[in-house]
Design a protein around this nucleic acid. Structure first.
Lengths: 335, 335
DNA sequence: TTGTAAGCGTTATCAA
DNA sequence: TTGATAACGCTTACAA
């Protein structure tokens, strides 16, 4: 237990506590020799600044909040990316999963923002898509950054990925494999990232000179995928490939095929989106899209810290690239 | 932003700040009418105590740490159980995923414990199984509780479940379905909970008067399950059922069956352990064991808070019951 | 049952 | 470039 205080360090180094504080916070106006003396004293005493005292005096918490939907399958990747960046900058993280999306979620987030427990907030969809959240946070003047906002939004203070392009790439891949009747299963309408994925599908179909089929609509969950899958298999002529807006629904489609005795990928190709842990463990393995979630989360965290330190800063947004992960749930079209 | 301080409340209620403090902390020696006055003032001012000041003065952080293995599939369930309990008791949570198990992990945990950032630590396996962790924490006198320690350990300050009994129940279920050649796939030897699951299998086989087959050994990951699955299918006579120490390996066995053209469950029954999200989304759905993880986590958190508040307390351990989840990966033995 | 006064260990102000 | 000293907003003796 580091029980040494700043006074002990000051005494040992023969300087005032203010000077120690300066060294601690990397302030410039300290002579190099003095800085070194202080550093030595700190090391010898095994001194660590008391976070609570620092928070109280500095009027900052050095705590960031991460708001996301409970049980979201990418939560753990996001957390680890955020934590790493936090660690690098001596911040700590408070996680804040939201159970349901509305309407209490907004109050819940307001509470967190107003409570003064955190210096800034990081949000992921679909929580960040709740009507009015961002406006609320801006109004409350609490620094915030949205993670995984789709590129096309041009949202200020956000980190996104090229969902639309990569969605198009899936279609192109399927077309190359000889598919023509490619069906799309859309996600929950409140989850805006999903809309772009669908656009990419339309792009791909148009580019290939194919007619887009009327899309089915799921709610992002496994069970809805299963239902859409059953519907798709009942269509005549039957689609030879199904692209889903996320992996859970794709798993549902695979289940529907299994139940209908339809072999994947021989009789039906299935693709998803997100590369959740499940994707590699399904049988067959799921062709999907992997987003650089840890890097995105780390980048978002750094943007947030920048914003916290410098409230006047201008908008800043970043795009990182996702990539296609080809597994065995897609194959040549049946003849 | 609640900018009111304890002084404002005291002034408004016409009492001293000490009295406000008493009300805030639910101390007994306050006249009911006074308490009420203070409550009114707090409400009218929208006052919230400043956490940093409270931490500094009270020499407690009101922060708990949760240490677990990164990417563990039950992390999110554990987190939500812990968070709920934290919230009820006005504590906050710092999550601390460990990347690898050894040997740095121990230093990592020591660092966290010594840093004074948390009042107590919650640990889950396999991190809690690292040699010397518990001893380290006791030595450092930092309150700690282990979550999901297996029942048989009689570990002090822990919350566990009836792994062994339930593992036996799986075997009984298979035996009822006519299975005789039931193979067990063991988990990583460092993960102690796994040993008990194997014991339960042995119990079940013995009770049914069946000969236990030589177990295979995986490392808890999907890929090892796939390899064990391939091995199992190559055995002659072939087992009709495979019980795995966790779901990831069970998914691997299902994959191996898929690759070998063996139908599950018609030709091979497969069961797992944990009911990770994947389990319900595999095709066929995986028969497995569901632990009341949120409740276990909540209970562990409450034990920890109790221990933090009352360092002299005696050992305390709890067992909660898991249950069998029957899905379609198990069925009657082939004839 | 209530209040006074002294910390807790930092950062911030302002003078030296 | 450095240092006294005053906050910061609470809890904890100790009185009353």
């Amino acid at each position: 237990m580091s029980t040494a205080t700043i006074d002990d360090v000051a005494r040992r180094a023969g300087v005032s506590i203010k000077t120690v504080s300066r060294v601690l916070n990397g302030e410039p106006l300290v002579r190099d020799s003095t800085r070194e003396k202080v550093r030595v004293a700190i090391r010898e005493l095994g001194y660590r600044p008391n976070a609570s005292a620092r928070r109280l005096a500095g009027k900052r918490t050095y705590l960031l909040g991460l708001v996301y939907q409970q049980n979201s399958s990418y939560a753990s990747r996001v957390q680890s990316g955020v934590l790493e960046a936090c660690h690098d900058h001596h911040y700590e993280l408070l996680i804040h999963p939201c159970r349901q999306l509305s309407p209490d979620a907004l109050d819940d987030i307001r509470e967190l923002a107003e409570s003064g427990r955190v210096d800034g907030l990081l949000m992921t969809p679909p929580v960040s898509d709740i009507a009015g959240v961002r406006e609320l946070l801006e109004e409350l003047r609490i620094p915030n950054v949205v993670l995984s906002r789709v590129a096309e939004d041009h949202a200020p203070w956000s980190v996104g990925t090229n969902d639309r392009d990569i969605s198009r790439a899936i279609v192109e891949h399927l077309v190359e494999q000889g598919h023509r009747r490619i069906l799309y299963v859309r996600g929950h309408p409140d989850h805006k990232a999903m809309a772009n994925r669908y656009q990419g599908y339309l792009d791909g179909m148009a580019a290939a000179g194919l007619e887009a089929l009327p899309p089915l609509r799921g709610d992002n969950a496994f069970e809805s995928g299963r239902q859409c899958g059953a519907q798709a298999l009942a269509q005549s002529p039957r689609p030879t490939a199904v692209v889903c807006a996320n992996d859970h629904m794709a798993a549902g489609v695979i289940r529907a095929a299994y139940e209908a005795g339809v072999t994947v990928p021989d009789e039906l190709s299935v693709a998803g989106f997100d590369d959740i842990p499940l994707a590699g463990q399904l049988s067959p393995g799921l062709t999907t899209v992997r987003q650089p979630m840890e890097r995105m989360a780390g980048t978002a965290t750094e943007l947030l810290i920048e914003r916290v330190r410098n409230p006047g800063l201008e908008d800043n947004a970043r795009i990182l690239e996702s990539r296609l992960v080809l597994r065995d749930s897609t194959g040549p079209a049946p003849t």
